[in-house]
Every structure is written in C-alpha cells, then in structure tokens.
Computed example of a mutant assay.
Amino acid sequence: MERVPEVAVVGAGIVGLCTAYALAERGTSARVYESGVPGHGQSSGQSRIFRHAHDDARLVEFTRQGRAVWDEWADRLGAELVSRDGVVALGGPVPGRLRILRETGGISVRSVDSAELHARMPLLADYAGPAMLDEDGGAIRTRVAVESLADVLGDAVVTDEVFSLAPTGRGTVEVLSTVGRAEYSAAVVCAGLGTARLARNMGLSLPVQPAAHVRLTFQVVGAPPERVACLQDSSGDFGEVGVYAAPYPGNSRYAVGLSQTVEVREDGSFADSDALKGLNDRARAYVSRALPGLDPEPVEYLHCWVTGLPWSEDGMAVWEADRIFFVAGHNLFKQAPRLGRALAGAAMAEGLEENLRPAERLGRPR
C-alpha cells in the first residue's frame, strides 16, 4: 500500500513550495495540493524585491534571517535566487527605516547621495531627496525559485483541489479533495484567496482583505546596464508615493508596480470596474516621469490577486486550529524560505513561533 505523506500543504505558490522543501530538509514528507500551475497565482511574475526595510523591527529581523536562508538554498539548488544589486529607497520614510535597520544590526545599509544613487539606479530621473541603499537586498528570481523548488519536490506536488480540511478526532487531519480523501499528521494552508474560505470551514474568520494588483514591465532603452538596483519610491516627487520596481534577469527589462490595489467585493467583483485600468495608466505615467531609462510603452502586463491584513501592507500571520495552520499576508515572497521553515517546525509539533500568531500583528508599525 502506498505510504501517505506526513503533512498536507495546500497551495503551490512560493510559501507552499518553501514549506514542503523545509519539511523535506528535515526528513518529513509532504503532499502539495495545487489546482493550477505551481507559482502562477499570487506568486506569478519574473521578479520581486527582496528588501529589509520595514516599519516593524521584528519583521526586519525576520527578513534578515530569511536572507541567509535564500543564500543557503541558492547554494544547494545551484541557482541565483536573489541578485546582488541592492535596493534603493526614496522619500520621507527613509530616515526612520534607516534607523530601524541600523538598530537591528547585521544589515549593510546606508544613506546615499545623488551621485551614488545615479550609479546604482541609472534608469532614474534626477532626484535630490532622502535616499538609502540596502546592499543586501536585490531582485528575487521568482521563476527560477519556483521552478527549482518544484523540480526538487517532484511528484510531491499534485494537481488537485482541496475542498475541506478537518480534524478527525484521532490526532490527524482529514483532507477532502477533488480526487480523494487522505489523513495527515498536520496541514499547512497557504492557498492565497482560498485560505480564508478553507479557514471558515474550521470556524475561523481571517481578516484577509482581497484586492487586485497591477505590475507592468518595460524595456530598457539601449544597452542594459551592467548593474541596476531595485527601487522602492515613497517620495511623491514623481507623482506616486508607493512604487516598487525590480529588474528582470539580464537587466533588459524592469517591472514596475504601485502599492495601491483595487478593492474586491466578497463575491470577487471589483468595487470600481475602471480602477484596474486606472492603475495601469498611473504606472505608465510614473515611468514617463521617473524612469527615462525605460521605454514608457509596457511590454508585459501582470494582474494578480493579493491578500492583505488590516494592520500593515507587509503584515503576516498564521492561524492554528487542531494541527491545521492557515497562512495569510501580503508581500510574502521575500519571507517565504524563512516562513517555510517556521511552518515546517509548527507542522512537526515544535510549536508556532510567537511572532507569527495573529495577536502579535507582525509588520505593524511601532
């Protein structure tokens, strides 16, 4: 008889894949349920930012620890998972975040003047306001990360949709899916929009705020720069106060997104049907003003769902009920290996890290 894996992981986005890989590191088998293509939901796209800057010192430390895991896994998998080009941040929040980063320690970060800013970010228009460089940050190679983890996990990732999870009363968790029923010692649910639904079946009401996000990709004008940093722009100098941007591998393309999202009703429809197009237009206008090194006509459009928590755009938490763990939050790609190891430990009955409990409001500005 086929041996059933010990832990069920629902969702093969980056958090689910990292959780399953972290379990495998420790000799614990997992089955990863995914109804679509691994890494093509909220984890889609070619590039994300790995940045240490947050308004909660606890999250800065969590992120610092996570950078080491990214590096460890990159060595083991034989692939660059995070670039070494750094992240530049602009705007009023810079002094406060710089202070938090320095107090945390172990992070190479400093203020930069306009000359060094231009050297690190040659695509950017002239800017003379507060700026800092996070040298240990960089662009996450998202496709490489997803594909490398999925390849290693192999047949542990199955194409199947989970309909419900429930404790059996025998110390195990029952999973009912499209094609069957199985029991596991524990389950980890990181299914994006589906997480709140599955949690509700367990009597948990997760305060997840679903929304839609826009990210456009632009071609670099002329030869790609040998080095180009990621960008976090909160300055407002170029017409927007929440911009995130990261280069593709090879630096010939640059993905630009706004932190603003489009509100989604509970039935999945948009509260404002024109808002998504409006964000597209604003991103294009921002590039025309702020990034003259890019052709302002997008070459790719990415629209994806996001699941935020009310206390912070970087907030994250894990709810626990009868050996089932429900993960929610936004901007989790950079946290995924560190979070995956924490979830693996919890699934192996070592206890959930205190900062990840909902009452801790991890990511909340302090």
Rank of each mutant, 00 (worst) to 15 (best):
L206N: 07
L124N: 05
S148N: 06
A115K: 07
A156P: 02
E147V: 05
V112D: 02
G105K: 01
V158N: 06
R97Q: 15
L149A: 12
G137S: 10
G154N: 08
D151A: 14
G154P: 09
T195K: 05
S164T: 14
R200E: 15
F163M: 06
S83T: 15
V146P: 10
V146N: 08
A89I: 10
E147K: 09
S185F: 01
E116H: 11
Y184C: 06
L98W: 10
V157L: 07
A182Q: 06
L206P: 05
A166I: 00
A182S: 14
P95A: 03
V152F: 10
A139D: 11
A187G: 01
S108L: 12
A115T: 14
R143L: 15
A145E: 12
Q209V: 14
L123R: 02
S185G: 15
H118I: 00
V82T: 05
R141V: 01
V208N: 00
S108N: 13
G203R: 03
V173N: 03
L204D: 03
V82I: 15
G92R: 14
A186I: 02
G92N: 08
E147A: 13
S177V: 06
V175C: 14
G194V: 09
S108W: 02
D160H: 01
L117P: 05
P122A: 08
E161F: 10
P210S: 09
A89G: 10
G203D: 08
D136L: 10
V158Q: 05
L124D: 07
L193W: 07
A187V: 02
G106C: 07
R197S: 13
L123I: 12
R120C: 12
S114G: 03
G106V: 09
D126H: 11
E183G: 00
E103M: 01
T178K: 04
L98G: 07
G92T: 14
T104C: 13
D155G: 11
V82E: 03
L176N: 09
